[in-house]
Amino acid sequence: MRGSAGRITTVVAPVLLGVLALAAWQALVVGLELRPFVVPSPLSIATEVAEHADVIAAAALSTATNALVGLVVGVALALVAAAVAASVRVLDEMFSPLVAAAAVVPVVALAPVLYTMFGANAQTARVIVAAIVSFVPVYVNTLRGLRTVAPVHRDLMRVLAATRRQATRVVTLPGALPFFFSGLRIASSVAVISALVAEYFGGPVDGLGKAITSAVSSSNYPLAWAYVVGAVGIGLVFFAATAALERGVLHRRSHR
């Protein structure tokens, strides 16, 4: 009973805080008579969301697809690279400057170059941007996890005459899982952001980034914010999915 009450509180408290924040936002807009180009009211944004729900959903689906494909590609490459770097020290030293460079590449500079390379009518550039941005946090965290093995556990495996493969499966990989999921949570968020930002600089005229630009250029600021709400929704879905995956995997391993 106490656990159920705690879970209910965990859900109710953020929702209540959000409702209060929206009420304060609405009151400030009305009380200060703020113009829509400064900040529209939550009610006007909600009206645009309701009226253009199908358009927002279609744009959100395009952005989410690019972010998801980029996230999967980036995570897969990061896991392979981290496993190789953890096994071969020389390769780790070779990868380090490349990863550092990838971590500081600005999307605003990379996206136009990729559109020139792969064509302005293809989604390839957006996927590559999301993959590069997702690669770094997963690689760094996974590599750290693979190398974080308690000496007592390593000594125990030696005493038990375990092979390297057995030690990796029993000790190294389970110990690296929390680090991997920490990187994955970060990557899931930045993949959405990077795919959204990449849409501002070219490519097909779909996705939330292009929709926001179009709404702002026509001075329809509540609609632009409605598209922002769609982007927030994608980010929340990605974060919730990775959190649920982490909880399920770690819970399953803890009960073995």
Score class of each variant (00 low, 15 high):
residue 199 E to V: 09
residue 222 P to S: 04
residue 27 A to D: 13
residue 136 V to L: 05
residue 183 G to M: 08
residue 138 V to D: 00
residue 207 G to R: 02
residue 116 T to S: 10
residue 57 A to L: 09
residue 26 Q to P: 05
residue 149 V to S: 06
residue 3 G to M: 13
residue 7 R to A: 10
residue 191 A to G: 03
residue 156 L to W: 09
residue 72 V to L: 11
residue 188 S to T: 01
residue 87 S to K: 15
residue 121 N to P: 00
residue 70 G to D: 04
residue 237 V to T: 09
residue 10 T to R: 15
residue 89 R to S: 14
residue 169 R to S: 07
residue 93 E to Q: 15
residue 63 T to A: 05
residue 5 A to W: 11
residue 235 G to Q: 04
residue 110 L to C: 08
residue 173 L to S: 03
residue 214 S to R: 03
residue 217 S to A: 12
residue 169 R to G: 03
residue 91 L to Y: 14
residue 170 V to Y: 09
residue 120 A to V: 11
residue 171 V to R: 06
residue 165 R to I: 13
residue 5 A to C: 08
residue 223 L to V: 01
residue 241 A to T: 11
residue 77 L to W: 00
residue 81 A to Q: 01
residue 150 A to E: 15
residue 230 G to Y: 07
residue 237 V to K: 00
residue 5 A to Q: 09
residue 198 A to L: 06
residue 135 F to Q: 01
residue 23 A to R: 10
residue 70 G to I: 09
residue 48 E to P: 00
residue 198 A to M: 06
residue 198 A to E: 03
residue 9 T to L: 12
residue 232 V to A: 08
residue 190 V to W: 08
residue 18 G to L: 11
residue 184 L to F: 01
residue 27 A to Y: 12
residue 151 P to Y: 01
residue 75 V to Q: 02
residue 199 E to G: 05
residue 241 A to G: 07
residue 161 A to S: 06
residue 45 I to V: 05
residue 32 L to H: 11
residue 88 V to Y: 10
residue 14 P to L: 11
residue 246 E to C: 00
residue 88 V to S: 06
residue 14 P to E: 11
residue 4 S to M: 14
residue 131 A to I: 09
residue 29 V to C: 00
residue 237 V to C: 01
residue 186 I to R: 04
residue 99 V to Y: 12
residue 150 A to V: 15
residue 254 S to A: 11
residue 185 R to Q: 02
residue 12 V to E: 10
residue 187 A to E: 05
residue 79 L to A: 04
residue 92 D to M: 15
residue 61 L to Q: 08
residue 242 T to C: 03
residue 126 R to H: 08
residue 67 A to H: 10
residue 253 R to E: 02
residue 186 I to L: 12
